[in-house]
Every structure is written in structure tokens, then in C-alpha cells.
């Protein structure tokens, strides 16, 4: 199974048809991402099989249960094609469990079923480290839009972020740019909650639930040629 980034790019640049964006549709809040992408004029593909990765301008990896998604990545045969496609430059917006699936290092994976991450994002992700649902929260975030495509469109308005049993991002590698941080109660310092590494944007929170499409718009501006 070959995913050729050049084809992705040529389709995006030369075709007048709407950009094709995928949502990883194994489990979780993928319809929420699909709604945002549709409203932005995308043709949305629910990705459940390797062939559906072809011709995508962007793939959203949604929130949900990372254990379930990791298991279904393997049973659906998507795991290796997805890893190869992202490694070859497929632009990705990963939120919450999606970010867990991309991580190179996992902490706090305390259940009876372990997540097998794809190991593409140079970050330590601590699962459910903000706590259980009682500790889920909303907060306004300042985002450094200069680290994203179309930076001028971001503006200065805080981003209303919803964190649900969220993972904590730690020890970002040299290639990882931190775009927003948040200081949890009891933490010594602010920690990354929105990062970018080349073709990957990863959020510990859920931009698809905010009614604010700025992060999705920026993600649609990612090009395989940019990195």
C-alpha cells in the first residue's frame, strides 16, 4: 500500500473540487471533526480501511478511548498503512486520544489493555493524567499562531478549550514546537497542550467541541511540502 504525498499535494493545488479530509472513524468523537471539516467546505471521508487514506489533504484523529482505538487500528489492518502515510507526510490533526496514538513515549497506561502508539510524535504523553471526569475542565488558551499555517488568521482571541479526561504532554523533542500551554493545579510550570511537529498538530484538548474552527482551518493549511 503506497501513499504518495505528491499526489495529495497535486490534488489540493490543481483540482477545483473540494479538498478531501479524512476522520479516523474507528471510535470516538469523529463526527464532531467531520462537522467542522464539512462546514469548512471539505469532502469528508470516514477512514476505516487503508484505501481510504489515499488522496487526503488532512486526517483528523479524534478523541475517544485510546485503548479501543489502538485495538481497532490493529484489527482493521489500518495500523501500518496509517503509520506509513503519516511518516510520508500526510497532514494530521490529532486530538486527545489521537495524540496518545501518535506518541513516541506513553506514561500512565495503567489499564489491562495497553495502547500501542504509532511512535511518530516526539513527546511523552501521560494518559488521563489530568484525572477522571470530575477533573475535566474548560479553559481559555493563548495560542501561538505563528507556528501554524495562515498564522495571521488566528487573531488574539483566546481559544475556548475543552479538556476531557485529558492526557498531559511532557518532554517535547527538539522538532516539536509548543503552540499553547496550560498550568494544571499543583503543577510546577505550564505544560504543552497544543504542539506541532512538521505535518502533525496535536492537542490535549478538543477543538472539535468548541465551535471554534481556527485550529482546523490552520490544519487544512498544512502541506506535505512544508517540512
Amino acid at each position: 500500500m503506497l501513499i504518495v504525498p505528491q499526489r495529495v499535494q497535486s490534488r489540493a493545488v490543481t483540482s477545483s473540487s473540494p479538498p478531501r479530509a479524512g476522520v479516523l472513524a474507528l471510535q470516538g468523537a469523529y463526527q464532531a471533526h467531520a462537522r467542522v471539516l464539512s462546514a469548512l467546505g471539505c469532502e469528508v471521508v470516514e477512514v476505516q480501511r487503508p484505501a481510504q487514506l489515499e488522496g487526503l489533504r488532512l486526517l483528523c484523529m479524534p478523541g475517544g478511548e485510546s485503548t479501543t482505538m489502538s485495538l481497532l487500528l490493529s484489527s482493521s489492518g489500518l495500523r501500518e498503512p496509517l503509520r506509513q502515510a503519516i511518516a510520508a507526510g500526510l497532514p494530521v490533526l490529532a486530538t486527545c486520544a489521537g495524540a496518545i496514538l501518535l506518541a513516541q513515549r506513553l506514561e500512565g497506561d495503567s489499564g489491562s489493555l495497553k495502547v500501542e502508539p504509532l511512535g511518530l510524535l516526539d513527546l511523552t504523553v501521560d494518559r488521563n493524567a489530568y484525572g477522571r471526569q470530575n477533573e475535566s475542565f474548560e479553559a481559555g488558551l493563548e495560542i501561538d499562531w505563528t507556528g501554524l499555517p495562515g498564522s495571521s488568521a488566528g487573531g488574539t482571541q483566546l481559544f475556548h478549550a475543552v479538556f476531557i479526561r485529558a492526557p498531559r504532554f511532557q518532554l517535547p523533542g527538539a522538532q516539536v514546537r509548543v503552540l499553547a500551554s496550560f498550568q494544571p493545579a499543583g503543577a510546577a510550570a505550564a505544560e504543552p497542550v497544543l504542539v506541532r511537529q512538521g505535518n502533525i498538530i496535536a492537542a490535549a484538548f478538543h477543538p472539535e467541541l468548541s465551535g471554534d474552527d481556527r485550529i482546523h482551518r490552520a490544519a487544512l493549511g498544512l502541506r506535505p511540502a512544508d517540512f
Binding site: 469523529y30 479501543t68 475542565f137 479553559a139 476531557i164
Partner: peptide
């Protein structure tokens, strides 16, 4: 500061449990 226990946060978890 952050707000917990709001309706958006409650529905948020329900959204995460979808398709399961």
C-alpha cells in the same frame, strides 16, 4: 481560570464514548 463540571464538559465525555 479553568471551569469544571460545566454542561460542555459533561457532554464532552459522552461525545468521546460515541461509536463504541
Amino acid at each position: 481560570g479553568p471551569v469544571s463540571g460545566s454542561f460542555a464538559v459533561k457532554i464532552g465525555l459522552a461525545e468521546m464514548l460515541r461509536n463504541g
